[in-house]
Computed example of a mutant assay.
Amino acid sequence: MKLTVDRDVLADAVAWTAHALPNRPSAPVLAGLLLDAAADGLTVSAFDYDTSRRTTAAADVAEPGRVLLPGRVLAEVVKALPAKPITLALSGTEVTITCGNAEFNLLTMPADDYPRLPEPPEPIGTVDAQQLAAAVAQVAPAASRDETLPMLTGIHLDADAEHLTLAATDRYRIAARDLTWQPTTPGDNVGVMIPGRLLHDITKSLPAGEVTIGVGDSLASLQASSRTTTVRLLDPQFIDYRARHSLDDYQIWAEVDATPLIAAVKRVTLVGDRGGAVRLVFSDGQVIVQAGGGDTGRASEMLPADLDGADIDIAFQPGFLLDGLAGVDGRVRIGMTTPAKPALIVEPGDDPAYRYLVMALRTS
């Protein structure tokens, strides 16, 4: 194998692919990045049996070939090289990386032992990449981090002829976001569960444009530009989140600017006990944000708010409340019934695309 490639192009391809490298590989070869040089360019791949990444970069290939190199070392080396063309040349069990006056010789790993990467499943539709990334960022905080309950660590994707809906829950809150998309076969409905942490990581690095989503028996894929990612699916069982997100269930509605409310919650909780509550006391024309009362002290802040319904004093876990408020730009509506029942955070409008149900805390 011998090729020449632009330094920035290779650095981008290697850095993106290296995100799929496992921290504790189950086999030594999984710590490597697979480089395939062919007439159409250089393909860089990584695989850990749960997720795979591959991307093709433009390169001047003098001698086609295939080599497996230590992934994290390669990423650090390429990142540190000057902004000049890079030459990679295989000789025996070493790859020589030359860039300007710098030269590195990396020992190869046994490429024949590297597992075959899964093929992307059949596409089910396309969606704007940046809108998908924003939607995943809105719902991902509600996915559980408890790996002993895999079902709760995922983001559920529901797809029909008009909408792609993402939803997640950790039993204390339920977040959902609707997106418009273009299904491949409009009559088909799809419901799958993708690991939330992986989906969030994948969508953060999507290039601008359309992303094609594929779904098979056990795999999902996202393809955008020259980048392809596959991820193993979780058990698709999920709660009936739509029934819990009905606007008709709430008799009290408050509307307030999200950014000042977020800032006020962060300020007053500076004196709150660890794991303590933040209280929102709504009355006509205002909301008082309160926290503390233990050994440290108390804090409160008043903000203007519109209230439709009876006055209410309701408390939340601060982090859960902030995650929900962060998903809304501009004005936020909060639907409530009693201080002991969950509240619904939504965008203004009759059919909000983003809905976040959060449990209320009982306070003495």
Rank of each mutant, 00 (worst) to 15 (best):
P183S: 12
D178K: 02
V328K: 00
A360P: 00
Q251Y: 02
A299Y: 08
L233Y: 07
A167W: 08
L303K: 03
D188L: 15
M359K: 05
R7N: 07
R145I: 13
A38F: 08
P120H: 08
M193P: 00
S225G: 15
L90Y: 04
L233P: 04
Q138S: 13
V281H: 09
A353Q: 06
M109K: 02
Q130H: 10
D308K: 15
R66C: 10
S226N: 14
W253L: 11
P110R: 13
D249N: 14
P120Y: 06
V215N: 01
L107H: 11
L152I: 07
I334H: 00
R171L: 06
A353E: 14
T93H: 14
E119R: 13
C99H: 02
P110E: 03
T98C: 05
A315S: 15
V358D: 00
D217C: 12
A243P: 00
R173I: 04
L152G: 03
S91Q: 11
L307Y: 01
C99D: 00
G285V: 00
R279S: 11
D50E: 14
T363Y: 07
L21Q: 06
P22D: 10
L325Q: 04
A140M: 10
G32K: 03
M193C: 12
S91C: 10
P318H: 13
L361D: 07
N101C: 03
S225K: 15
A75Y: 00
G214W: 11
A175R: 01
Q290A: 08
I239M: 11
D36F: 09
D323M: 11
L270T: 10
T296N: 08
A13M: 08
D201I: 02
V77S: 00
H163T: 07
R54N: 07
L325I: 09
P121C: 07
L179P: 01
A11D: 05
L261C: 09
I213Q: 05
T180C: 06
D323E: 14
A13V: 10
V328N: 02
V281W: 02
A220N: 04
P25D: 04
G294N: 08
I124D: 02
Q317F: 15
A57N: 01
G187K: 15
L270H: 06
G324I: 12
N189Q: 15
Q237P: 03
D284E: 10
L157H: 02
R66S: 14
T296A: 10
Y250S: 05
A129W: 03
R242S: 11
G327L: 14
S45F: 08
L33W: 09
V215F: 06
G196M: 12
F104E: 01
G327K: 04
I124C: 11
F316D: 01
V73Q: 05
L164S: 07
A263I: 01
V281E: 03
I97G: 00
